[in-house]
């Protein structure tokens, strides 16, 4: 049976609302935290899906932006909570505990770094692009480990979750609502982007850069813009993830995390709007359920991934809709 993609979108969003509401009624705050984790990972993967799914660029260093978002939150909140000054050359600030400002900083810094990484890495393609993005990821990872001022290898703990006007962010359901609202907003923008002239041009570039050039499209510019947008969204997710855990550490920059984001998208469906969301839900569910049974749960994840790659190229969304995913 083939399912309409809009129906899948509606079902997943409704599920993401219903499950935490059920958990709230049943007084199971941990379930709400789990769903929040899935929503944030989904947001990070939606960001990656812009370059991977539409642009066909296998970025193996997207944890850079996730980590930058996390550290942006960690550093700003650390200074605000310890009443110390953050010196940035000519500029000094006391940090902030205000979430929207933290998100903005996380997105702007991630976008800037994505622009710099993109300018260098997008000159390559295929396996070289994968390796360069991985190398940048490792650079940031080792930098974070040696950054003693902000906890080095041990990471940085934040005592209290940051503030959002009108909400008590320490209440799991309220923090979840913020994350879900942001995910829905980004998904809406992503849907618009996919059908926009920019999205179509980027898609055309994925299918053939040479052909795209002959109709006047500049692949480098399109990919760079996509990379910047993608970095900003993943950076936002990083800030939320750090706020969820009230902790930021160099593992947010790790290549394993970059790999997990790719896995989430492959499970859900490459280039599909809800692919990353479904992938993140499956991933977090497996992590929780199988992780409780055995510490080697990744083996089962590997088997699932193998089956999807071999038998369902469009991921779960592709399986349900009967359509293949984007060819990368």
């Amino acid at each position: 049976m083939r399912v309409n993609e809009h129906a899948i979108t509606a079902a997943v969003i409704l599920g993401l609302i219903a499950l935490p509401v059920w958990a709230l009624i049943m007084d199971e705050p941990f379930t709400i935290t789990l769903v929040t984790r899935a929503v944030i990972l989904a947001l990070a993967a939606v960001g990656l899906n812009i370059v991977l799914g539409i642009g066909g660029l296998v970025s193996f260093g997207h944890a850079v932006f996730f980590g930058i978002g996390g550290y942006a939150m960690g550093i700003l909140a650390y200074h605000a909570q310890t009443y110390t000054t953050l010196e940035l050359g000519m500029l000094s600030t006391g940090g902030t505990k205000f979430m929207p400002v933290i998100w903005l900083v996380a997105m702007v810094v991630s976008a800037f770094v994505a622009g710099c990484i993109g300018l260098l890495s997008l000159r390559t393609s295929g396996v070289y692009f994968i390796m360069i993005t991985l190398a940048f990821g490792q650079m940031f990872y080792y930098f974070a480990i040696s950054w003693a001022q902000y906890g080095g290898e041990d990471g940085l703990s934040i005592y209290i979750r940051n503030d959002f006007p009108g909400l008590n962010t320490l209440v799991p359901i309220q923090f979840f609502a913020i994350c879900l609202a942001l995910l829905c907003l980004v998904l809406f923008l992503m849907a618009r982007l996919q059908s926009s002239v920019f999205g179509l041009a980027l898609n055309a570039t994925r299918q053939s850069a040479i052909r795209a050039e002959t109709v006047g499209l500049n692949p480098m510019r399109l990919r760079l813009l996509a990379f910047v947008l993608s970095g900003a969204v993943t950076g936002l997710a990083g800030a939320l993830f750090a706020d969820l855990n009230r902790f930021v550490s160099p593992t947010m920059f790790s290549w394993q995390l970059s790999g997990e984001l790719i896995v989430l998208i492959i499970i859900g469906g490459v280039g599909r709007l809800m692919g990353p969301v479904i992938g993140a839900c499956v991933f977090v569910t497996l992590e929780h359920v199988l992780g409780g049974l055995t510490e080697f749960w990744h083996i089962y994840l590997g088997v699932i991934l193998l089956c999807i790659v071999l038998f369902a190229r469009g991921g779960i969304v592709g399986l349900l809709t009967g359509k293949e995913g984007a060819h990368v």
């Binding site: 059908s195 002239v197 179509l200 041009a201 898609n203 055309a204 299918q207 053939s208 052909r211 795209a212 002959t214 109709v215 006047g216 499209l217 984007a326 060819h327």
Partner: peptide, 25 residues
């Protein structure tokens, strides 16, 4: 300079309208 390449080479994953919109000037 508008090129209609040998072997057509349309953007296979895009619809007819999307192929046209992607190239529009």
């Amino acid at each position: 300079v508008g090129l209609v390449p040998e072997g057509r080479r349309c953007f296979a994953d895009l619809t007819v309208t999307e192929n046209l919109i992607a190239a529009a000037r």
